[in-house]
Design a protein around this nucleic acid. Structure first.
Length: 901
RNA sequence: GGGCGCGUAGCUCAGCGGGAGAGCGCUCGCCUUACAAGCGAGUGGUCGCAGGUUCGAUCCCUGCCGCGCCCA
């Protein structure tokens, strides 16, 4: 028969049984089914679906400059399980894939890979080719050449990623990929920025900024981390103007900032310093007069309770400087060295002399030298006292951050506006979190914001700000009058594109224009992934069908960055949440309970393990990890998954064999009995009717008459209900556990019990009942397993069903329950316990399980024994029991006394 | 320092007011025509510690100890 798409599919159309291989195997199923899914468009998004029918996913774009590790496999599997479940529930799943190629990690990788570095002052070289091997010295190249290399390398990386994802079986629509630096993403990032700017949510400000001196870029609060570092308290004496008065003693960990000192500060209630407030002191060495001021943030417990305020040693300095309106005397430059020119406040000759000793030195060297100078002058009291204290670092950097005053773009995020902060906090409350307790991470973060979101980065590979500045007659940029492009022209690069109303010759000329030199923070682009993937402003029809999205899956450590920033952007643009659900995955830990990360060198490459054990096995492990819970990398669990997959192959082969071996009653065509409905087999079409109907389907017209069969189906219906509830709550692990444990009972007890009857030992009615039950149960089990084990379930499905299991409907508990017709799940437990008792006796006697039992006597309470009695014939058959006696008079647990033959 | 999560069998983890569970491991057995990459049976835990609530606590409350993470 020819399938609807025109391809030959012999396994689906041959006479019964021919589709079931004699020796089923997992070998090669990943490649085989990935290709079929691709060819048949199994996961293609139907963009005619209405919004209510769509389930849309804001997939995390992995950073292509890194490599995928098992942590990715872990969390992406979780999302895929949900996607597959929703698809089977009848939702049209919008599941795109992005690649994050934007930003510093890519720059670093390109530098190392090609042995180059970006020098923006160089002109573009159209003939440039990178050296075959990176040389010792990094080759300086132009910005455009550098960006070309970034794009070249990330394209290769993307290919490798896609190959792995396909192998893993992600049900992504691969026709819908994006990269965070591609044309569409740049246009979205620039458009969103221009809208922020127009509404006043984006603004340019010259302000003290956390600065990484290695990368020479500003960094945002969200990218900070505290690291414990050794330091030392230095006790310094500040002389009073009245030389006779006692000097003021302060303690500082950063004596090199003494030339930047603008005041001393103590707590307003501190009795020790009441008399000093309003007075002045003079800085040692530099002899600058500074006031003693009061501020609540001065900690009376810390050091001597009085501190020096420098511009700027830390973020508290910035607060003091701003709130107390102190002058700026910056000494640390963007390169992390003390600037050449002494602050103007230093006027004395000796002050200049001392400063000259420090100028040009790194912060570290300056500290060493100033300690010597302070010691010589006598201002340093005692020895420095070593301490350990938290120091702020850029999370990707390895030198402490400095604070320098620079001009930067900011986006309002509630950090300086209580009403916006409250609104954004409320958005977090609106979002459904899985697991629920992850919400507090969001709230902690919002509550702790101390400023707006700084989005400028002084880097090369990123989305440029779509902004130029007019130059006045002296050639000085007018930062207060930025020139912006039309939205229609986006994306633009202001360093090569010319603003409206100007000519290219005017670039950099007085009266002309200059480009904003910076690029946006990667999060400024990543925060727009729901808009990039949905075709915001470029495909309004698609956008209306998929946005706001249903799900954001992501890791917990980027709630403050990715999740929060996305909420900020859509709140500003649309006044809505970007998605209704956030599923937060945990981390992968190595067997020593350490987080797996590249820097720890304990990362496992996923492709090897996928090839060794199969994708379903690895997915099984991933899906066993509870939502949000950190999970150990566990090869043993993967092996269990592989065994499960093999078991599904074998059990399916057997069950399908049982349902087709013996001649069966009716000759009706497939898909018309009630069991056929419950098994998910569609009604026959005219084309199908011409072909021989699989016998598996024929027996499904038979009624499920036996109590044991009804019990099995009743239990199955309960499992379907519970698994459905679990998946609706994003608890894929619970759903898997329920399905798996039912499946083992199905194999070990039910199938063993009905084997004889299904072969026809007790006549056609009993056989048909068993076969119908096996078929219904197998069909439902395959579909329950399908989201977690897409390959093996598709393989088995193809033996006897049309179409993909991944487009089949999710099992319907009500239909199964109807077939069960009042069957009692406890019957299965009771008969299972009886069978177990018989096995125990054989095991204890060390005889084969097929050994005959002369007599078995089963005692228990009347109800339980009656249940066993209802399946007595199957029990006798499965246990090889010649004489079965039932005693319904006992109390307590079922007991089984066995006399072997 | 504040917040959140977690401490249950040798290991990995479920359970979360009335019988302490699964998988792996280990022991013993079985070539049983679906499966020996299998099957059957068994072994194994004062459920972190100390109080409290309750007729009853692994489960709820309080405190403590340990581990992890987030935030300062």
């Amino acid at each position: 028969m020819v399938a609807t798409d025109g391809t030959e599919r012999s396994t689906r159309t041959a006479p019964a049984n021919a589709g079931v291989p004699a020796k089923p195997s997992l070998d090669g199923i990943e490649a085989r089914w990935s290709a079929v899914w691709q060819d048949e468009g199994t996961y293609a998004f139907d963009r005619t679906a209405e919004r209510g029918q769509v389930y849309s996913i804001d997939t995390p774009p992995p950073t292509v400059s890194g490599s995928l590790h098992v942590g990715h496999v872990f969390s992406y599997t979780h999302t895929d399980v949900i996607a597959r479940y929703q698809r089977m529930r009848g939702r049209e799943v919008f599941y795109p894939m992005g690649f994050d190629d934007n930003g510093l990690p890519t720059e670093r990788r390109v530098q190392n890979y090609f042995g180059v570095r970006c020098d923006p002052s160089l002109p573009y070289d159209p003939d440039f080719t990178p050296p075959a091997k990176p040389g010792k010295e990094q080759l300086p190249i132009s910005r455009r050449n550098f960006v070309d290399l970034c794009e070249q390398l990330t394209l290769e990386d993307e290919k490798g990623f896609e190959e792995l994802w396909r192998r893993l079986g992600l049900s992504v629509d691969w026709s819908r990929t994006y990269a965070t630096i591609d044309t569409g993403a740049r246009a979205v990032a620039q458009r969103a920025f221009l809208r922020n700017l127009a509404r006043g949510e984006a603004y340019l400000a010259e302000a003290p900024t956390l600065w990484d001196v290695t990368f020479r870029t500003a960094v945002a609060q969200a990218e900070l981390e505290d690291r414990e570092r050794p330091g030392a308290y230095h006790t310094l004496a500040f002389p009073r103007p009245d030389a006779a008065a006692e000097p003021v003693i302060i303690e500082t960990t950063r004596p090199e900032l003494l030339p930047a000192c603008v005041a001393l500060v103590a707590h307003p209630d501190d009795p020790r310093y009441q008399a000093l407030f309003g007075q002045t002191v003079r800085t040692p060495l530099f002899d600058v007069e500074v006031p003693v001021v009061a501020h609540r943030l001065a900690d009376p417990e810390k050091g001597s309770g009085i501190a020096m305020i420098c511009t700027f040693g830390d973020l508290t300095d910035v607060i003091w400087w701003r709130e107390l309106q102190l002058p700026a005397r910056a000494v640390v430059g963007r390169d992390g060295r003390l600037v050449t020119e002494a602050p103007a406040a230093i006027t004395s000759e000796s002050g200049h002399g001392h400063y000259a000793e420090l100028a040009g030195k790194t912060v570290h060297s300056a500290r060493v030298r100033i300690v010597e100078l302070l010691t010589e002058s006598g201002a340093l009291r005692g020895e420095p006292r070593p301490i350990s204290h938290p120091v702020k670092f850029y999370e990707k950097g390895d030198r402490p951050l400095e604070i320098v005053t620079t001009r930067q773009w900011y986006i309002r995020n509630g950090g300086r506006d209580e009403s916006l902060r409250a609104d954004l906090r409320a958005r977090g409350g609106e979002l459904r979190w899985h697991p629920e307790y992850m919400r507090v991470r969001y709230e902690n973060w919002v509550d702790g914001l101390n400023g707006d979101w700084l989005i400028s980065r002084q880097r090369f590979f990123g989305v440029p700000f779509p902004v130029w500045y007019p130059l006045d007659a002296e050639g000085t940029p007018r930062h207060d009058e930025p020139i912006v492009p039309d939205e229609a022209s986006l994306p633009i690069d202001p360093s090569s594109d010319v603003p409206p109303g100007y000519t290219a010759e005017q670039r950099g000329m007085p009266g002309g224009f200059a480009a904003d030199p910076d690029v946006m923070d990667t999060w400024a682009t990543s925060s727009l992934t729901p808009l990039i993937a949905s075709g915001w402003e470029s495909d309004p029809d698609l956008f209306a069908r998929v946005f706001p999205m249903d799900l954001r899956p992501q890791a917990h450590e980027i709630i403050r960055t990715w999740l929060f920033s996305t909420v900020v952007r859509t709140h500003a643009e649309f006044g809505v949440l970007p998605w209704s659900n956030a599923a937060i995955s945990g981390w992968i830990l190595d067997p020593d309970r350490k987080k797996m990360s590249k820097s720890k060198g304990n990362v496992v490459t996923p492709m090897a393990i996928l090839e060794e054990l199969g994708s379903d096995a690895v997915r099984y492990w991933a899906a066993s990890g509870r939502p949000g819970t950190d999970t150990a990398y566990d090869v043993g669990q993967m092996k269990t998954g592989r065994r499960l997959a093999i078991k599904i192959l074998n059990a399916s082969r057997f069950a399908l064999g049982l349902t087709t071996d013996a001649a069966s009653g009716g000759a009706t065509s497939a898909g018309e009995g009630p069991a056929a409905q419950a098994a998910g087999i569609p009604p026959a079409t005219p084309a199908d009717a011409a072909a021989p109907a699989p016998r598996a389907a024929r027996s499904m017209t038979a009624p499920v008459s036996e109590p044991l069969d009804r019990a099995l189906l009743a239990a199955l219906a309960e499992v379907v209900d519970a698994a459905t509830t679990a998946l609706d709550g994003y608890d894929y692990a619970r759903a898997l556990e329920l399905t798996e444990s039912f499946f083992w009972r199905f194999c070990d007890d039910y199938v063993e019990l009905v084997k004889g009857r299904a072969y026809g030992s007790f006549g056609p009615a009993g056989a048909d009942s068993a076969r119908a039950t096996l078929t219904v149960a197998l069909s439902a089990l395959l579909r329950l397993f399908a989201p977690v084990l897409p390959f093996v379930t598709e393989e088995v499905w193809s033996w006897w069903q049309d179409g993909s299991v991944h487009r089949a409907t999710w099992p319907d508990a009500a239909e199964i329950r109807k077939l069960a017709d009042g069957g009692r799940p406890e019957l299965l437990d009771a008969v299972g316990a009886a069978l177990s008792g018989v096995r125990r006796a054989k095991s204890a006697a060390k005889v084969s399980m097929k050994a005959e039992v002369a007599q078995a006597r089963i005692a228990g309470d009347a109800d339980t024994v009656a249940l066993v009695d209802a399946a007595a014939a199957d029990l006798r058959s499965a246990g090889g029991i010649q004489e079965l006696t039932l005693d319904p008079t006992a109390t307590g647990d079922l007991t089984v006394d066995v006399t072997l033959a």
